[in-house]
């Protein structure tokens, strides 16, 4: 699990006039109670406000 990146930094674009969201890859999971407080079990999706 050492070199796990939760998403590819390059996206394959197949056409214009489209939006692309990178696909998430499973790497690590948060500790359960922390996950509830944070609002997700995936640390790479946590976006702290303020």
């Amino acid at each position: 699990m050492a070199d796990c990146t939760p998403f590819d930094k390059t996206i394959t674009v197949t056409k214009l006039a489209q939006a692309y969201v990178p696909i998430q890859k499973l790497c690590t999971l948060m500790e359960p109670t922390q996950a509830l407080l944070a609002g997700t079990v995936f640390p790479e999706l946590v976006d702290i406000y303020k």
Partner: peptide, 12 residues
């Protein structure tokens, strides 16, 4: 805060 984070996950 919880609800806000859920929106981000849903977007993904």
């Amino acid at each position: 805060r919880f609800l806000r984070e859920r929106e981000i996950v849903h977007f993904q």
